[in-house]
């Protein structure tokens, strides 16, 4: 059963056409890796998937189990996205508290536990502006994990991370991969780290797109413009 469907989606940024006539359905256990050059529309596509932007035409629909959840999407943007007058731990617990998914004490305890798991115990009581970039990224991931969403939407999760933090984030991505009920969409400029992780791949370029059914099809691609992302 589908978790999310893109139905005849047209996406524009101002006058620029980013995507046209796009149809795709993703089910539980599927992981779509969206790649393309800067300005190709990856971030806008992820915002569509997260439900924070609307297409110029067509529709993006959450279906099945996603509909039943008060917070169906775990959104991890590349930058920002944390409430600045709350600490990282409070940010992580916020959606679970707001939707009453957990009792207050449990939400706060689990929020700290997730941050500790991601190596950020020392940063938990800091506000986002005072925390490191890695701590902010981990808080975003922890917030998404805590609501147990039907759909994860992740933007460049490994970008600008040192090897220790990259390892911790990779561990989280593996956790998402091993969850048969979770669907995920991940945007990136570098395919390498996600070749094994992704189950389908979507290239965005100059108003066009191409969907690859699996890694093997992607590796058979002869187009130099695509091979660049594999290097």
């Amino acid at each position: 059963m589908s978790v999310i469907e893109f139905r005849g989606v047209t996406l524009r940024e101002g006058a620029k056409l980013l995507l046209s006539g796009f149809d795709l359905a993703l089910g539980a256990g599927e992981r779509l890796v969206v790649f393309g050059a800067s300005g190709s529309g990856k971030s806008d596509f992820l915002k569509l998937a997260a439900g924070v932007a609307s297409p110029a035409s067509g529709a993006v629909v959450l279906l099945g189990p996603a509909l039943a959840r008060p917070a169906p999407v775990g959104y991890v943007p590349n930058q920002g996205g944390l409430i600045n007058n709350l600490t990282l731990a409070q940010n992580v617990a916020l959606p679970a508290l707001y939707h009453k998914l957990l009792p207050a004490r449990e939400a706060e305890a689990r929020s700290r536990a997730f941050l500790a798991e991601l190596g950020q115990s020392d940063e938990a009581e800091r506000r986002p502006a005072m925390a490191s970039a890695a701590a902010r990224r981990m808080a975003q991931l922890a917030r998404a994990l805590l609501v147990e969403p039907a759909l994860f939407v992740l933007e460049h999760p490994l970008e600008d991370m040192d090897s220790r933090n990259a390892r911790l984030i990779s561990g989280t991505l593996e956790r998402i991969r091993s969850d048969a009920n979770a669907c995920a969409i991940l945007g990136t400029r570098k395919l390498g780290p996600y070749l094994e992780w992704g189950s389908r791949f979507l290239l965005l370029s100059e108003g066009g797109f191409k969907i690859y059914a699996d890694k093997a099809q992607l590796l058979r691609e002869e187009d130099q413009a695509v091979k660049v992302f594999l290097q």
Binding site: Y75, G81, I83
Partner: peptide, 22 residues
């Protein structure tokens, strides 16, 4: 304005937290 630029309002919407309420 800063919350909007910083993606805070977008993140709230993504987690189905109504910015008017919160």
């Amino acid at each position: 304005g800063s919350m909007s630029l910083n993606g805070e309002l977008e993140a709230l919407r993504a987690y189905r937290i109504d910015p008017v309420a919160f």
